[in-house]
């Protein structure tokens, strides 16, 4: 489904991504774990077309999307729930969700999907007229995920969904990620919370200063000595 080939991304002369390759197959949850500044968000932004590769490319179902404008990439079925959520603070919860469906024209289907998002996140329905900026952090995370879902993506990119949430809420968010995946959406999950991420991921890659240094199934990495030392706190 999604394939990243020898990707190099630069900010000016600084090379943030130094030639990484990985893939997400149909229906998989794949996680990319790594410390601060490893290049996870840069990778996500490049897949979504907000940044352009210096070399290498990104393929979606065999089509090179590394030169496609960002808004078209959404239309092709890649949604991103960005780091720090980036909710539209001055618009209502419902308008935020409908902006997620911006590229779609199938009005009735949009209504149905809105109802589904509300079923997944009942809190959003209770607060559908509230301004996005006035939601709590956890509610904003739900809104960001619901908003990404509204584009009806084939694959959803999630950048640190657990950031700043209580352990209980993290559990809830992860079970919803699983549910979204069960409904047929592939997931690329970026996390610093390696334990949670590895426990739901089918496969995982470890990224360190712009390079992939290890990969395997979620379980393998969860049991790896190196990973335990570096990312799971002993």
């Amino acid at each position: 489904m999604l394939k990243v080939n020898d990707l190099v991304v630069r900010y000016g002369v600084i090379e943030a991504i130094k030639g990484i390759s990985f893939e997400v197959n149909d229906g998989e949850i794949v996680t990319l774990i790594g410390a601060n500044g490893a290049g996870k968000t840069t990778t996500m932004h490049t897949i979504s077309g907000l940044l352009r590769p210096y070399s290498g490319n990104v393929e979606l179902d065999g089509i090179d999307i590394s030169k496609v404008p960002a808004h078209k990439i959404v239309e092709m079925g890649v949604a991103q729930c960005p780091e720090r959520r980036r909710i539209f603070a001055s618009q209502s919860v419902e308008d935020n969700l409908l902006l997620g469906a911006y590229t779609r024209k199938d009005k009735e289907e949009i209504e149905k999907d809105l109802a589904n998002v509300y079923k997944l996140f009942p809190r959003l329905e209770e607060r559908n007229k509230q301004l996005g900026g006035t939601l709590s952090g956890g509610e904003q995370q739900m809104l960001a995920m619901g908003r990404a879902l509204m584009s009806k993506p084939k694959i959803m990119l999630l950048d640190e969904p657990s950031m700043g949430l209580s352990p209980l809420l993290v559990k809830e968010i992860f079970s919803i990620i699983k549910e979204i995946n069960d409904n047929g959406t592939s997931i690329l999950l970026v996390e610093q919370n390696a334990k949670m991420a590895l426990s739901i991921a089918k496969r995982a890659y470890v990224i360190e200063t712009g390079r992939i240094v290890m990969s395997g199934t979620g379980e393998e990495l969860l049991n790896s000595e190196d990973i335990r030392k570096a990312y799971l706190g002993g």
Partner: peptide
């Protein structure tokens, strides 16, 4: 509000 986020909506 946020051009990057707007692009992620397909705008």
């Amino acid at each position: 509000e946020d051009k990057g986020a707007a692009q992620l909506m397909g705008i």
